[in-house]
Deep mutational scan, measured.
Amino acid sequence: DYYQTLGLARGASDEEIKRAYRRQALRYHPDKNKEPGAEEKFKEIAEAYDVLSDPRKREIFD
């Protein structure tokens, strides 16, 4: 679930989605986080943001 990936509730505003993405992206960015799995988590976060930030894709997902 993309909302869960970003730590959001369904119905989150565009601003909340953007804030959550930035927070998670900084936390799991491969240059900042060298833990195994961080790069994969970063890709999941980017995919979630891509879907939720686009109104058309978000409507299909919801």
Results as ranks from 00 to 15, higher is better:
residue 1 D to I: 02
residue 1 D to Q: 09
residue 1 D to F: 02
residue 1 D to M: 08
residue 2 Y to D: 01
residue 2 Y to H: 14
residue 3 Y to W: 07
residue 3 Y to A: 00
residue 3 Y to K: 00
residue 3 Y to R: 00
residue 4 Q to Y: 14
residue 4 Q to H: 06
residue 5 T to C: 11
residue 6 L to P: 01
residue 6 L to N: 02
residue 7 G to P: 00
residue 7 G to N: 05
residue 7 G to V: 02
residue 8 L to E: 03
residue 9 A to V: 09
residue 12 A to T: 06
residue 12 A to F: 01
residue 12 A to D: 03
residue 13 S to E: 07
residue 13 S to F: 03
residue 14 D to H: 08
residue 14 D to E: 11
residue 15 E to F: 10
residue 15 E to Q: 07
residue 16 E to D: 11
residue 16 E to P: 00
residue 16 E to A: 14
residue 18 K to W: 09
residue 18 K to S: 11
residue 18 K to V: 12
residue 18 K to L: 13
residue 20 A to N: 09
residue 21 Y to R: 04
residue 22 R to T: 08
residue 23 R to H: 15
residue 23 R to I: 15
residue 23 R to A: 15
residue 23 R to Q: 13
residue 23 R to L: 15
residue 24 Q to S: 09
residue 25 A to Q: 15
residue 26 L to I: 15
residue 26 L to P: 03
residue 27 R to G: 12
residue 28 Y to Q: 08
residue 28 Y to I: 06
residue 28 Y to W: 08
residue 29 H to S: 14
residue 29 H to E: 14
residue 29 H to Y: 08
residue 29 H to L: 13
residue 29 H to A: 09
residue 30 P to H: 05
residue 30 P to G: 14
residue 31 D to K: 12
residue 31 D to I: 07
residue 31 D to S: 15
residue 32 K to D: 08
residue 32 K to V: 04
residue 33 N to A: 14
residue 33 N to E: 08
residue 33 N to S: 15
residue 34 K to E: 15
residue 34 K to M: 03
residue 34 K to F: 02
residue 34 K to I: 05
residue 35 E to Y: 09
residue 36 P to R: 14
residue 36 P to A: 13
residue 36 P to V: 13
residue 37 G to V: 10
residue 38 A to D: 13
residue 39 E to F: 09
residue 39 E to Y: 08
residue 39 E to G: 09
residue 39 E to W: 10
residue 39 E to I: 11
residue 40 E to F: 11
residue 40 E to D: 09
residue 41 K to R: 12
residue 41 K to W: 05
residue 41 K to D: 04
residue 42 F to I: 09
residue 42 F to V: 05
residue 43 K to G: 13
residue 44 E to Y: 04
residue 44 E to S: 11
residue 45 I to T: 05
residue 46 A to V: 07
residue 46 A to R: 14
residue 46 A to M: 14
residue 47 E to D: 12
residue 48 A to S: 03
residue 49 Y to M: 12
residue 49 Y to P: 03
residue 50 D to H: 06
residue 51 V to P: 01
residue 51 V to Y: 07
residue 51 V to L: 09
residue 52 L to D: 02
residue 52 L to P: 01
residue 53 S to M: 09
residue 55 P to H: 08
residue 56 R to T: 15
residue 60 I to Q: 15
residue 60 I to S: 15
residue 60 I to H: 05
residue 62 D to P: 09
